[in-house]
Nucleic acid binder design. Sequence first.
DNA 1: CTTTCAGCCTGGGCGC
DNA 2: TGCGCCCAGGCTGAAA
Length: 272
Amino acid sequence: MPELPEVETIARKLAPQIIGKKVDQILVFDSKLKNPKYKKLSAHLITKVFRSGKQVVIAFAPKKSAEAEYYLSVHLRMTGRLLWQKKSQQDAREKHVRLRVVCGNQNLDFVDVRRFGTVTLSDTLEKLEQKALDPMSASFTKTQLKELIGKSKQEIKSWLLRQDRLVGIGNIYASEILFEAKVSPFRLACSLNDKELERVAKSTKAVLKKAIKNCGTTFSDFQDSNGEIGNYQNYLKVYQREGESCKRCKNKLIQRAAQQQRSTFYCARCQL
DNA sequence: CTTTCAGCCTGGGCGC
DNA sequence: TGCGCCCAGGCTGAAA
């Protein structure tokens, strides 16, 4: 479900809620997520919560102001959510709770309907770090983008989804970024000239920044740790607007096409 | 090396 | 109300 802005939102809201909490135990309700190492987290304190790519990373230390010993990295994929909530009487499995971090009378629940989400435990940050560039980092520039693209003959929309080059962009923001940059999603990545690369780089930063400011996009089930939703769906220019008018050129030319079995939305008039 | 494509899962919404 | 089909904001690994 979530892309970079949604994961950033989750991490930011979760951090003040769970930092300083002491872990009693980890409960796993999904056989795919079983891991005997989770026992090691008992009695540890949560010391940090942050985003890495599309993952939410939670750091654990044996005591306050000690170095983190473990990092729990959660990838929410399509339908995953992290909810900080009071202990409930309900059966965890009924609500698709897959993993539960028990902290006193509250739980951090990893809820995931489709079970695509993954959870990994690591004892160093290096093992979690992505080789790919984060588009919100200062080193993401037109020059960097050009270098990353190289001679790739993939269509630019598909290229933007490649997590091994650039982390964090998913299906919604790829369409929105290319609309903002006035670049057709079907253009081959290697065919973009310097001006177009500049527009793609700038639009990437601008779109993601604005989405983060608005706490992400909510369609069906994106929620932060309080069960609150984002606002960016009100700012989407092309995504899910097939047949509607372009907000820039006013023509009824917002179209939908399939690329790699995923929907792409674009304006047939102003994206060249 | 690069690129494509089925598969992983479940549920909601639609037409019949 | 029920059934089958399509769709869903992601990623992996095998195949071409």
